[in-house]
Write a protein that binds this DNA or RNA. Sequence first.
DNA 1: TCGAACCCTCACATTGATGTGAAGGTCAAG
DNA 2: CTTGACCTTCACATCAATGTGAGGGTTCGA
Lengths: 142, 142
Amino acid sequence: MRIGELSERTGTPRRLLRYYEEQGLIVPDRCRNGYRAYDERLVDRVMQIRGLLEAGLPTRIIKQILPCLDKPRVIHFSDATPEMIATLTRERDRMTERIQCLTRNRDAVAEYLDAVVGNLRPDAAPEASPGPSYEVPANSAT
Amino acid sequence: MRIGELSERTGTPRRLLRYYEEQGLIVPDRCRNGYRAYDERLVDRVMQIRGLLEAGLPTRIIKQILPCLDKPRVIHFSDATPEMIATLTRERDRMTERIQCLTRNRDAVAEYLDAVVGNLRPDAAPEASPGPSYEVPANSAT
DNA sequence: TCGAACCCTCACATTGATGTGAAGGTCAAG
DNA sequence: CTTGACCTTCACATCAATGTGAGGGTTCGA
């Protein structure tokens, strides 16, 4: 497929697809006329890239971990230098930290929301703890 | 404490502490001489901010979710406008997506690492062995 | 043959999070 | 009083990710 279709299917601006290529994250073929030709599998890959970028990983790191994520478990020993192992280990741990931080804070936000909508919408929420120190204003329904 | 101590205790450049203040994420007092005076609790708060930034949240969003995270569960109903509820819900869901994306990819990296160090020596310095790619025979769990 | 809808490269602009440094005020110790 | 280690504000620089558009080629259907 060409860049326009990939762009639509991934919700990614063409500009960024070219940028990811420039950063070495994806490597499309070229048609005879110079147009980029993307493999079907790049749809998933692009969304994976976007997710990782969204989660704060820089392209430099994404480029390094992408080869680990291919379906047929193939170990490229040329990539398995000591530095690469160290990098991957470090990134794995950093990702774990991010996950923990995000989880903690997501749960706190969710708890807050439960408390708020529990007061505003008594039909949708299960019983929250009896209100310790927050007060319900007299607000109109919905 | 003053900015230098907070900087050291959080591993955060002074520049960034002033930046976070400019963005409304932290609000230090001021001594009579104009120096910023930080409360002890800001140590945790700054590290929380850094974690969230690291995880890809912009300061604009962090500013909005921070008030939900205070220990004594106090609902500020002035913040509980419909737009605020919508924002928090959206951000909660985005955080969940990030967590899922990070978890998937972290696990893949971890699996890859397990396979690699499972073949090399898990503890000693691995050797830089040039060579082609190998298919790793079906490996069991660690 | 023309126009619309694609594609290309190149290049500059912007945004958010940072780095860096200048010019100067405060304060404790020598 | 001076020096050094703090602090202040201001401002410009950088970096990665992204926006935007100019200038131009390709393909296809009316």
